[in-house]
Design a protein around this nucleic acid. Structure first.
Lengths: 151, 151
DNA sequence: CTTGGTGCAAAAGATTTGCACCCCC
DNA sequence: GGGGGTGCAAATCTTTTGCACCAAG
């Protein structure tokens, strides 16, 4: 954890930004809740528990900054809010998501499943792929089992 | 075109909704600008040209309705607005997009490139895929060529 | 009549911005 | 002492909602 904060600090410094206490508090929340796809409001409330003086605007500004530096990915699952997802260290791509339309849960897939598809896009469309976002909508294992039991 | 309107009319009727003049005007705009990924505001302004008495709320309600019936797909490219995309007739899946990070253009890929990937998700994660959304971010052919020339 | 659909204006959210202040090199 | 960063409140922007009214069966 400390190691990852150090790493982010370096990335900020490389672009002449500082890791202020507010930014650090925000990053810590993101690290602690890495699997959680938090909204800006979620992050704000969690940061506020530890650092009550922080403002919502600062959280927005921090999330925006981290997104620009590709430390964070801004995603949108179709409810009205943006959610934020730490990019895995060293990952050159956004990871994928499985969104359950029954219970709303979100699972992550870290494997890159799209290498072949990217080659096709590159060759057949002449499009130079830099990143991708892939979300599957469907029914998760738990909900499938629940349905079977209920029947 | 008329044929596609008829088809949509039937789909509405099948769910006990009517194809009112306002809805028809909205659908016509969507058909005319099928490749364009319009926002609700865009649609509203275009419909207003032909039917000036229409209200923005009605457009929102129509787009919402058509999305629920899967006639339309609601997508989000990360700018603050939802955009709407007519589903190709008979397509069971959302189609894919190539978003150029240089010029902002959006190309569509109708082919389903994800059949193999879906099988993997189904088998390895036990997730029953109902739909997917895939967007590639990168540099389109035109912008690549422009860069080469400029160098 | 009664129900679904509409237009308008107000409301509700999410996000951004203006500004005074503050801390650090 | 100048610039980046912050907190607060106000502003902005998109989308939703309440309500009175209208049209068709």
């Amino acid at each position: 954890m400390e190691h990852r904060i150090e790493h982010i600090k370096k990335q900020l410094h490389a672009h002449s930004y500082k890791l202020t206490p507010q930014r650090e508090a925000t990053v810590r929340v993101l690290l602690e809740r890495e699997e959680d796809h938090l909204s800006a409001e979620d992050v704000y409330l969690l940061v506020k528990e530890k650092s009550p003086e922080i403002g919502l605007a600062t959280v927005y500004r921090t999330l925006e900054l981290l997104s620009e530096l590709k430390i964070l990915d801004k995603i949108n699952f179709g409810d009205g809010v943006s959610r934020y997802d730490l990019r895995k260290e060293g990952a050159k791509h956004f990871h994928h998501h499985l969104v359950c339309i029954e219970c709303g849960s979100v699972e992550e897939i870290v494997n890159d499943l799209l290498e072949d598809v990217e080659k096709i896009v590159q060759n057949d469309w002449g499009f130079e792929v830099k990143d991708h976002r892939l979300t599957f909508h469907g029914i998760c294992k738990q909900c499938q089992e629940a349905t079977v039991k209920a029947t």
